[in-house]
Design a protein around this nucleic acid. Sequence first.
DNA 1: GACTATCGATTACGCATGTAGTCTTTTGCT
DNA 2: AGCAAAAGACTACATGCGTAATCGATAGTC
Lengths: 151, 151
Amino acid sequence: MSDAETSLSPTEWEVMKVLWDHGPLAARDVFAKLPPDADGAPARGWAYKTVKTLLSRLVAKGAIDYDQIGNSYLYRPAVDRDAMSRQEVGGVLERLTGPGAVSGGVLSSAIAQFLGGAELSDAEIDKLQAILDRKRGQTPDKTPRKRGRRS
Amino acid sequence: MSDAETSLSPTEWEVMKVLWDHGPLAARDVFAKLPPDADGAPARGWAYKTVKTLLSRLVAKGAIDYDQIGNSYLYRPAVDRDAMSRQEVGGVLERLTGPGAVSGGVLSSAIAQFLGGAELSDAEIDKLQAILDRKRGQTPDKTPRKRGRRS
DNA sequence: GACTATCGATTACGCATGTAGTCTTTTGCT
DNA sequence: AGCAAAAGACTACATGCGTAATCGATAGTC
């Protein structure tokens, strides 16, 4: 179980974030909680109907679920946010490199960009550095190119 | 110049990678260099025509350029791979968090996944750790949530 | 009890994408 | 010179996505 197949579009992510952040909500409230867009328009600038459509599609693809309350629905996430994030990130990884994890150079500059744009607490930084430490030394030797530094 | 607007679809990335990796190529050769897909089918399982279409679309969106050699074209990348990667990564970042770089927890677990899947040289690791070090201490206090660990 | 504000369901529609096929021209071979 | 092979151009078509509007049922209001 657990559709490993679900994938979210950018707009769908927007809706999911609202549901993940603020528990179960009715369509109205999802709409209300949507952040303003760049131009300051509320609800990302979408019409209420648009949100309804997105909610329906999310139900259809199994990303959210609902309980009927009276005549309306109370929507709640049906997929794990972390799992979705991992999948998303994994997807980019694959697009950028290839089916088998490739070239550091290309990747690390992307990751650097990633890190630069992120707001991280010291604790998070610790965690990430620990991961990096663990990777250190496992240098892939498959690219005997311009080594120079080492040991 | 330099369309900051170009964005590549997954299949388009596949073609771009071939062009970035092996210099200018004719359609035939791009086709030939495409990696086999999961099922072992060559050229990612695409028909040659499909590759032609992708090349045309890439030319149309300015991602590649070509020189005419006799009756055929020699295609070459017209956009920077790193820039594309950064854009791609930036996009995920935004989808996962929000327009303004948000919550560490969600983000860092995604980044962790990113790092876990990457093959990095020690030099790259150094670079990334340096970036992290620089971020350390600039802890955003906006999330006075469940702190608990630390000094 | 009648009318209106909502709700969810269904339909719409243009653009992007994945995946090709057909058409026309060019060119290389014989 | 003639013809088949190959190249690029144009066309095709289903699906997904962004962005809604319309439609029929319901429920709350006066």
